[in-house]
Structure formats: C-alpha cells, structure tokens
Design a protein around this nucleic acid. Structure first.
Length: 546
RNA sequence: GGGCCCAUAGCUCAGAUGGUAGAGCAUCGGACUUUUAAUCCGGCGGUCGCAGGUUCGAUCCCUGCUGGGCUCACCA
C-alpha cells in the first residue's frame, strides 16, 4: 500500500466525519490541561474496577494524540499521549452516543482525540479512563512510523523532527532537559546580578574568536555583514558602559564542517564579570556546571559521551583539577618520548623546534604538519603541540581546567603580570571535549591595538581565521573598561553531556541538513492527491564553543 | 574535499552464485465488550535510489550520479 493510498483512505475518513456532522479539525473540545497528569497520580489500588465506577468519582476531561489502539468491535482501549504522559481510555459502545461511537470507529493511531470520564482499574491493574464522552479532535492523514521499531533513519529523524518526537518519546525528554538546562542557566546568572543582554548577530567585522564566518548582506545600507562568530566584543563594550555583569545566551555561527560535535549554528552562554579574574571564573564555572548536572541529570557522577563518542563516567564534584598548558603538553609528549622536554624546557622555543625536528612529528600526521607549518611563533607551536599531544593526555574521569595559554593564540586575553608570554586564560575540558573558554580580559587599549595589528598581518599572510581590526572596540577600551573576566560555554555540548547524547544533532531540534531532494517527490500519481514535498527549511548552523 | 560503508513496501527489515521479491507493523474488508507490539481470517500495497554498461536476461555484476551514515581533514 503506497503512501498515497493510505492518505486517500484517511482523507476519505475526514469526509466521512464531516458528513456525520463531526469537525475533523475541531477546536471546541473542552479538556483540562492538568487532567492527564492528575489521572496518573491517583494510586491504582484506590480505583474501583469498572463495575464499581460511580458518579461520586471525579470527572476527567482529557485529550491527546492517539498512540496505540486495541479495538474489539464494540469496545476498545486507546492510549493517548499528552505532555509526555500516556493514559488509557476505555471505549464501550453502550455508553457512547451513536455519533460518538462513529467518531471512534474512524479514529486511528496518530489522530488527536478527547474523552471525558471517570477512572477505574483494568483487570490488568492499570488505570484507565472510562469514556462517557468521546470526540475526534484532529484527523492525521499521514500515518506514523511503525510502532515497535519507530523511526530510525538519522536523516529522517532530524529532517522530520515533528515525527521523530512522536515516534521516539525519549527524544522529547532530551529537549525538555535542554529547556531545563537553559532556564537553569538564566536563573544562575540572574541570581548573581548578571544582566541578560542581546547584542547584534550581524557584524560588520569578524571578531571575538578564531573562525570563518558566514556572509550576509543588508540591501538598503548596501552593506556586507557577517553572522557573528562570538558576541565577545559587544559584551565588553557594555562593561565600559557600566553593565558590570552581563551575559548573553544565544546563537553563534561558524562556517565550518559538520561533525558529531560541531553544528555550524550553535548556542553559547557568554558572560563578563567586572573586577573578577579568570581564577574567580574557575570557581563560578564549577558551581555553574555542577549545579546544572544536579538540576538536569540529578547527580554529580554522570555517564557522558567522551570525545570519541564512548560513554564514560565523569565525577563533577568540585573542585576540579587544574593543569597548565605547558604541564599538560609536557605530560602528553612524555607519553611518546620519555626524553621529551618538561614543562620548564618547553618555554624555550629553540628546544621546542629542535624536538619537533628531531622527532619528525610533522611527518607522522598531515594535520599536525599543517598546523606546525602555519605556526609562526613559539606560542603557535605550543598551541599545536597541546592540541595533538596534551589534549588527549588530559584526565578524563573529572572535568579539568587547562590554564595559562600562550599569548600568541589569545589575542583578547590579559597577559600574566609575572609571565607576559602567557595569558590569564583557561579552557574547560570534560571527557576530552572542550566545553568552555575563559580569561581575564585585556583592557589596555594600546596592547589591544597591537594584538589586532598582529591579526591583520596574519590575515595578509593568508590566514582565514583571524580577527579584523575593530577600531570602535579600541575606542571603547580607551574610555576605560574595568578589569574583568569573561567566559563562553558551549551549551549544545553541555546539553550533550548532561543528556548523555553522543551527537550534537541529538540536542539540536533542527540541525542543518542539505535541502531535501528526490526522496519525497517520487510519486504524485492520483489526480487530486498530489504528494506535497516536505520542505525542511534548513537553519544555518554554527560550531564550536569559544 | 579524502577514505570506508549504505540505499528493497508508508515504517522496521529479510532475500536471491544473475531468472523482475518477502515478513512484521501500518492500511482496507470481516469477527471480537479488558488491551499493553491485542488476536484470528481475507485483501490491497514495490520502476528493489537515478542513469548508463555487461548479459538471452540486471534489483543483484561494472561505471557514473544523487542522497545518507561513520571517519579523516577543515574547525575550539
């Protein structure tokens, strides 16, 4: 039976309902939003069997999507779902009107139906609502996926999320948890006197992170714009203006490939706190993430997907270990060469370059070779070595702060007062995955101008992921930005951890997909039943945490 | 963009060394007033992703294309 035939049958039922005086898309059924949940709260033992149902019992008015039906001709059990809860409705021909029973006969899995009645316990000891009234509310003309195996094709699941959510109820749970996480984050920030702001998503300049942007255009102003890769520079302008604690929870866009951990459009929590340091933010981050684990996942010891997609145990109980970039890198190098330079020796660029040459590490890995060939300074080289050797060697059973990054790869961070080749910065790693990036902010306008200048020079040498020189931002700093620390946390990745999802696509309702082609336009045979093509309008996507 | 794998009914999947194909669910008709993937009987349902090639014959082998998955690269 092809899909058109199924739809024709169902459209026929729509007409049958109309002719019998029913509205197949009614919106006048009186129900109570709380009743499905309330009905399920009543202990089954307290419910009478069907023959004991009396008019003294409370009346429930429920509605929902029909997700299962066991029909027997003159009776039936229907299972409806509303707000993630499922309730059985027991239908008997002899208590419904003839018209209601006809509506019941026309209903099938996928339709929205409603019933009024009292509760009883079935012979199997389950609660059920004995329908004294029944109504078809909305007829579905497409059939839901097969009930036992559901919808599995990953592409169809994200392309037709509306079906996925119905067919795989645990998917809805993930997104309810994500909503809980987001509201928790707002509460957390609001409780600490942070002001939530919304800054532009369309930027005339690229800034705040190292990434390739999406381009767009404003016609009336004849202006080329970029979708923001980070809100950082606008938020810090607000520090200048006197909003000493600000945060923004919103979308960023990075023009990159897709992976299990990257979506071109992603959500970031970014916040700035005047008169605080990156050390202060470590404690705040511990509090924030551990609190989120409690609220969303109900505990501090969680099973989460690691960077490889395997499920591992992580203990979020603060405080978390801290390790410097140089220490972490040295530890990683030791694993492949016990004569490798230690953290102190790594400070010497001659030793670093000699070790790289001696061990011919570039020859072992094309990507590392590329990274090293683009590394212009000691700091770039340390950054590359940390990525390849330090990161994989980080502890994975607890979250870990990696701190004190080289200046060269941190154009917006404050130099360490006692060690100016490094900056007051940390990144948070959980199960090998980068979750957040934070630093004490650079507020010396002259220094910032030099750093921008270096970015511009780098771009002129061919790099496509550098920041533009933001003159207005420098002007703002010249009015005096209070000392501050700021942080960005990748919310999609945090949601992956707390919801135990391996793929970022499983925590984003509508991840970017190629536009649909071919697969739904195959047949449009019947004359008045053209098969409408499903158009999934792909949102743009973004990627990483800062 | 590279590598590997995949595409059979609306959904989940079988299948034939190359002889044009099956199950369950869904759907339609019938029976059935306590089901939990209800059951029983009967029916409908396929350009085996698209286009070429080899062959007497291709859904199966080959090539290309399209779409997808994993992965690497790009990317914090």
């Amino acid at each position: 039976m092809d899909e058109n035939r199924i739809m024709q049958e169902r459209r026929r039922k729509v007409e049958d309902l109309r002719q019998a005086g029913h509205h197949p898309y009614a919106n006048d059924f009186e129900m109570c939003h709380e009743d499905v949940a309330r009905a399920l709260e009543v202990p089954v033992e307290d419910l009478p069997h069907e023959d004991g149902v009396s008019e003294d019992q409370p009346f429930y008015k429920v509605a929902g999507r029909l997700v299962a039906a066991a029909k027997f001709g003159k009776a039936a059990f229907l299972k409806i779902r509303y707000a993630g809860k499922e309730l059985q409705i027991y239908i008997r021909k002899d208590i419904l009107t003839e018209s209601e029973f006809l509506a019941f006969k026309k209903c099938e899995v996928g339709d929205h139906v409603g019933a009024w009645g009292r509760l009883f316990q079935t012979r199997q000891g389950k609660p059920a609502l004995r329908a004294e009234r029944f109504a078809m509310i909305t007829k579905a003309v497409r059939s839901l996926p097969e009930k036992f195996h559901g919808l599995k094709d990953p592409e169809l699941r994200s392309r037709m999320r509306y079906v996925d959510l119905v067919a795989n109820p645990e998917v809805a749970d993930v997104f309810r948890k994500r909503a809980k996480l987001v509201s928790y984050l707002r509460r957390f920030m609001d409780d600490r006197a942070f002001v939530e702001v919304e800054t532009p998503m369309m930027h005339p300049l690229i800034g705040g992170a190292a990434a390739k942007p999406f381009k767009t255009r404003h016609n009336a102003l004849n202006l080329d714009l970029f979708l923001r890769i980070a809100p950082e520079l606008y938020l810090k302008r607000l520090l200048v203006g006197g909003l000493e604690r600000v945060y923004e929870l919103g979308r960023c866009f990075r023009n990159e490939g897709l992976s299990r951990r990257h979506n071109p459009e992603f959500t970031m929590l970014e916040f700035y706190m005047a008169y605080a340091t990156y050390q202060d933010l470590m404690s705040l981050t511990e509090e924030l993430v551990a609190g989120a684990a409690q609220v969303v996942a109900g505990g501090l010891k969680l099973t989460v997907p690691n960077v490889e997609g395997e499920m591992v145990e992580v203990d979020f109980t603060p405080p978390w270990p801290k390790v410097s970039v140089l220490e972490a890198t040295a530890a990683g190098l030791k694993k492949i060469d016990d004569q490798a330079p230690d953290a102190q020796a790594l400070r010497d660029d001659a030793i670093v370059t000699a070790w790289i040459d001696d061990h011919d590490v570039a020859a072992q890995d094309d990507a590392l070779a590329t990274a090293l060939s683009h590394a212009e300074t000691w700091g770039d080289r340390i950054g590359a070595l940390f990525d390849w050797f330090g990161e994989p060697a980080l502890p994975v059973d607890r979250p870990v702060f990696v701190k004190d990054y080289p200046l060269a790869i941190s154009p917006l961070s404050r130099k360490k007062d006692d060690d100016p080749v490094l900056v007051d910065r940390f990144e948070l790693f959980v199960a090998g995955q980068e979750l957040g990036n934070a630093f004490s902010e650079l507020n010396d306008p002259a220094d910032q101008r030099e750093r921008f200048q270096r970015q511009v020079e780098k771009k002129s040498r061919g790099s496509d992921e550098t920041m533009d020189y933001d003159e207005d931002y420098c002007r703002a700093l010249e009015y005096g930005m209070p000392p501050a620390a700021g942080e960005g946390i990748g919310i999609d990745r945090l949601a992956m951890l707390l919801c135990g999802q391996r793929s970022i696509r499983d925590v984003i309702l509508f991840p970017l997909l190629r536009p649909e082609s071919g697969r739904t336009e195959k047949k449009a045979t019947s004359k008045n039943d053209e098969q409408p093509t499903i158009k999934a309008k792909p949102p743009i996507r973004g990627t990483e945490t800062p």
